[in-house]
């Protein structure tokens, strides 16, 4: 589903050249729940941006659902993002001026979907996160946890190939974070692949596989560290 081979990302300025990712190889299969961990500045966000087609990599090969994304232009990348990837951001990134219904509607509109189908999907997504009754509310009327549930609903509504979650509990208290994590696990158990970037070891321990990045390279075996027992995986980090 997602296969990176020797992917590198170099940021260049006039004075300095920074290797954010080096020879990064990773394969993620359908149905996995993978966490990406590592210290600040190790390249987690760069990985997430490349995996989510938000940035292009400098060299190497990245196949997303069989498509070599390096050859795609900006328009094609946008369309591929819209159809294949659901994003969950640390600070939710909801549109404060739009109500919840319109927020979840955003990716569907860019897909050019008919109004009736969009409405059906949005209400189903709201129902799945338990906030259908508040569809006319704006984000500021919700708690942080509720806002993240709306962000998850927005990520899921397009039925993407996988979810990319960037520190999804980073702005939440521990109780709320627990609820969000359980929701993500339910989603994964229902068959959706999840790739989650986090610095929270507790969260990482709940995933089926953890990839640890250090200085732009994978420091734990990316293709083999699979654990059926979350606690055992956590112990290996």
């Amino acid at each position: 589903m997602l296969k990176m081979t020797d992917v590198s990302k170099v940021f260049r300025t006039e004075l300095v050249e920074t290797h954010a990712l080096s020879d990064f190889s990773l394969t993620i299969d359908e149905g996995e729940f993978v966490t990406i961990t590592g210290p600040s500045g190790c390249g987690k966000t760069t990985f997430l941006n490349i995996a989510g087609l938000l940035e292009t990599h400098t060299s190497g090969e990245y196949l997303l659902d069989g498509t070599d994304v390096l050859s795609l232009n900006d328009y094609q990348r946008a369309k591929l993002r819209n159809q294949k990837i659901g994003f969950i951001f640390q600070s939710f990134n909801l549109m404060p001026d739009l109500n919840l219904f319109d927020n979840i509607d955003v990716p569907l509109r860019y897909r050019g979907m008919k109004s009736a189908e969009r409405k059906e999907r949005i209400e189903a997504a709201l129902e799945s996160v338990g906030l259908l009754a508040r569809k006319k509310h704006v984000p500021s009327q919700l708690s942080g946890g509720q806002q993240q549930r709306i962000a998850i609903a927005r990520a899921l509504v397009g039925e993407p190939l996988f979810l990319l979650a960037d520190e999804p509990t980073g702005n939440l208290d521990s109780n709320t974070a627990q609820g969000v994590l359980e929701l993500l696990q339910e989603i994964n158990e229902a068959g959706t692949t999840i790739i989650m970037v986090t610095h929270d070891q507790e969260l990482a321990s709940r995933s089926k596989r953890n990839i640890h990045i250090l200085d732009g390279r994978i420091s734990s075996p990316a293709l083999t560290t699979v654990s059926s027992e979350p606690q055992a995986a956590a112990a290996s980090i």
Binding site: Y75, R81, N82, Q83, N93, P107, Y110
Partner: peptide, 11 residues
């Protein structure tokens, strides 16, 4: 965010 969710430049 809109761009991340799939908006093209023209959109």
């Amino acid at each position: 965010t809109r761009r991340a969710l799939g908006a093209t430049r023209s959109e």
